[in-house]
């Protein structure tokens, strides 16, 4: 193994400390028994108890999960089609506009997206709610899905699709039975990404929400605007834990698949 230089080791250590210490502090203080948010008052899980008895957080969590699920599914379908059109669609009228529209939402500030969609929805619907949040979230999440799926499609050997067609498969048959199984990992990553993006979003949801459709970020934001709340620390800890476990499982399983594949290949030759 190559030895790391002092400089590199220091910059990595400091860098990751900066990235992780704030979250670790947040997690630790969610178990603080005291009322003061910065002074340790003994270990306690009382904030978790309060959190689970607070209807409005539970309601908001349920709304958020439903919105995120619908967004992720819809934007995965649309984003995968977008990627396929961009990578395999060849030339068509307005292609530049199309690819511009798929990249712009990636960097567009949330306030602009939120405001513009709100103005559209006001013209389309009498009342806004979960549906409008899903439509808004899908519009930007599908662009992220498209980026993830495009990069997989670009490295995917096009002769596989040609081979399927050569063996008698129609274009649709080829997409379902050859292309889709091979880009599946990227499609799944895209779904997870869209799910998290929807779960996280505050600004666009605030613009496009309506009565009875308060999402968790909206609820959290209105709580913490005026200061630190121990329940929110507890809630944050739960969310961090879920994400960490999810990412760990995902990366371990993909690492195991890679290792198995390498072993198979060595055995074959």
């Amino acid at each position: 193994m190559k030895k790391m230089s002092w400089f590199n080791l220091t910059s990595l250590t400091l860098g990751f400390a900066f990235l992780y210490i704030p979250m670790i502090i947040l997690v630790i203080f969610s178990f603080n028994g005291g009322r003061n948010v910065a002074i340790w008052g003994g270990f306690s899980t009382k904030w978790y108890g309060e959190l689970f008895h607070d209807e409005k957080f539970l309601d908001a969590a349920w709304v958020t999960l439903r919105v995120a699920f619908a967004t992720a599914t819809l934007s995965t379908v649309l984003g995968t089609i977008t990627a396929y059109v961009l990578v395999r669609g060849g030339k068509f009228y307005g292609r530049t506009l199309f690819s511009g529209m798929t990249y712009a939402p990636l960097v567009m500030p949330d306030v602009i997206l939120g405001l513009s969609l709100l103005l559209l929805f006001k013209a389309m619907f009498n009342q806004m709610g979960m549906l409008t949040i899903v439509l808004a979230h899908t519009t930007f999440a599908m662009c992220y899905v498209s980026v993830v799926v495009s990069s997989r499609l670009l490295t995917f050997d096009q002769s596989l699709e040609e081979a399927a067609s050569d063996l008698g498969a129609s274009a649709f048959d080829t997409f379902i039975n050859v292309t889709l199984p091979n880009i599946a990992p990227a499609v799944i990553s895209g779904w997870l990404l869209a799910f998290t993006l929807s779960l996280d979003d505050l600004v666009i949801a605030s613009f496009t929400t309506g009565p009875g459709a308060t999402t968790l970020p909206i609820e959290i934001f209105s709580e913490v605007r005026r200061g630190v709340k121990p329940q929110i620390n507890a809630l944050s800890t739960i969310m961090i834990a879920i994400v960490t476990v999810g990412v760990l499982i995902f990366s371990f399983s993909s690492k195991r698949r890679t290792l198995k594949r390498i072993a198979d290949e060595q055995q074959a030759n």
Binding site: Y20, I25, I220, S236
Partner: peptide, 27 residues
């Protein structure tokens, strides 16, 4: 993975974490 992990964690929570650290009575 360590760099990407915070990216999957809620943006709002990451900002909120600093409220507890930087406050007058903060960490």
């Amino acid at each position: 993975m360590l760099v990407i992990l915070p990216f999957w964690t809620s943006f709002l929570i990451r900002v909120y974490a600093w409220m507890g650290i930087l406050g007058r009575e903060g960490f």
